[in-house]
Simulated scan of single mutants.
Amino acid sequence: MPIVKTNTTQIAQPTQLRPYGLPTYNTSADAIAAYAGDDQIYVLYPRKIEAAARTFLNGFPGQVLYAVKSNPHPSLLQILWDEGVRNFDVASIREMELVAGLLPGAKMFLMHPIKSRATIARAYALGIRDFSFDHKDELQKIIDCADDATDLRLHLRLALPKGDAAMPLSGKFGADFESATALLQSARHVSDKLGVCFHVGSQCMVIDNYDRAIGYARDLVNAAGVSIDSIDVGGGFPVAYPDMPIAPMADYFHAIADSLSAHGFANIAVFGEPGRALCAEGGATLARVELRKGSDLYLNDGTYGSLFDAGQFAWKFPVKLHRNRPPAPALNTIGFRFFGPTCDSADTMNGPFHLPADTCEGDWVEVGHLGAYGQTLATQFNGFYSNHTVAVLSDD
């Protein structure tokens, strides 16, 4: 979708939907009826992805970087590009080459704080100039692999005090306060542009976490006594899963804008790295019921497939039943536990997932909100996997 740029806002203009090279159906039921395979079916909902992109492009108070890790499917990347997303957060050589090959005009940011020297060198050769770091040795690696280049745009990853996200990300990455002040001072001398970045945690449902993080960044920059050119507020933008109600995304945008202004960051470049919020609702998995035992359903997808978060973190994804034969599903529902197809007993999703009480073998269960961290986490364990992805045009 083309973008009309003004001085302050990116406005997405509607265009006609394209199928993006995938088998395309009006409904999920149509996709199931046409399928002759034995595996699960992955679904992309282009209109939902488009709507999410417009929300961020028109509302986020800065530049939008799509976090490719959340779903690198080429068709999804193309949908985002056509909507006007031009910046992509990549972490590996394969992600870089995927984006560069598919979208030659894209601007990539290598925001993974710890990288191999080969990754840094390949990134620089591909024209990437934005690099994250959180340690003096990583900073030196970037300098070495870019041959002491003078056009580096460096982003110091900060370790934040513990927040309230559903999936906290503290502990693995980020410089503490004392280290960060010294790193900012060192990086200022070797960077063309210098910024700070952080991540409040995945699925952050407490908006004030962004204000606390921005205030923390302000204190750190003041302590370092250097000027910065950008601030990256990271990802964490949530999606409304069952039992996880969220505020409107506009509330997040307004709070971030107000906090940036209040803490003296209004006149520098601002970045955000949505992943889940751009693609989660735009994807689903259609899994067939192979057997029912009481309130247990055995599916042809599970935690070693696209339902990792349902097993590992006990997330209750939205579900609905598809049955293409009589009788119509019962009106009353009960809570089910799911088991995946592998021989591993850990392939368990406790839910409960509420479906019609007469759900049985041969029915298909649509598990929603799996556009993010669904099929991208799937393995080929035990020989159970799917290469079948379709586009569905309805928004149901």
Score class of each variant (00 low, 15 high):
Leu184His: 04
Tyr216Asp: 09
Met244Gly: 12
Ala257Phe: 00
Gly62Trp: 04
Ala310Pro: 01
Leu158Pro: 05
Phe339Asn: 14
Asp243Phe: 13
Gly127Glu: 09
Gly62Thr: 00
Asp251His: 08
Val392Cys: 08
Arg212His: 09
Leu278Cys: 00
Ala33Glu: 11
Pro245Cys: 09
Gly171Glu: 00
Ser259Gln: 04
Gly127Asp: 10
Thr181Asn: 02
Lys316Gly: 06
Ala100Asn: 11
His263Ala: 04
Pro74Phe: 01
Asp395Ala: 07
Leu377Trp: 13
Leu286Thr: 07
Asn71Pro: 04
Gly235Cys: 11
Leu393Gly: 09
Met111Ser: 09
Pro341Asn: 03
Ile231Tyr: 07
Ser261Glu: 06
Arg54Thr: 06
Ile93His: 04
Tyr373Thr: 14
Ala328Gly: 13
Gly195Met: 01
Phe336Ala: 10
Asp176Ile: 00
Ala223His: 08
His322Asp: 08
Gly174Trp: 02
Tyr45Phe: 10
Glu361Leu: 11
Arg153Cys: 11
Gly101Trp: 02
Leu22Trp: 00
Lys193Gly: 12
Val392Lys: 07
Ser227Gly: 14
Ser28Phe: 03
Ala378Cys: 10
Phe353Thr: 11
Thr6Leu: 06
Gly171Cys: 01
Ala257Lys: 07
Leu291Ile: 11
Asn387Cys: 13
Arg325Asp: 15
Ala175Ser: 04
Pro326Tyr: 07
Asp309Asn: 15
Gln63His: 14
Pro14Arg: 05
Gly171Asn: 04
Leu355Ser: 07
Cys197Met: 10
Thr389Asp: 08
Ala266Cys: 00
Ala175Gln: 01
Gln312Gly: 04
Gly371Glu: 12
Ala277Ile: 04
Ile3Met: 11
Val367Asp: 11
Ile214Leu: 08
Gln13Asn: 15
Thr6Cys: 05
His112Thr: 13
Asp151Pro: 07
Gly236Arg: 10
Gln78Asn: 02
Ala250Leu: 09
Ala328Arg: 15
Ala123Cys: 04
Asp347Ser: 06
Pro356Ile: 10
Phe265Val: 06
Thr8Leu: 14
Phe338Asp: 12
Ile3Glu: 10
Ile228Asp: 07
Ser386Glu: 09
Asp232Thr: 12
Cys360Asp: 15
Val68Tyr: 03
Phe336Trp: 04
Gln140Thr: 15
Gly272Ala: 03
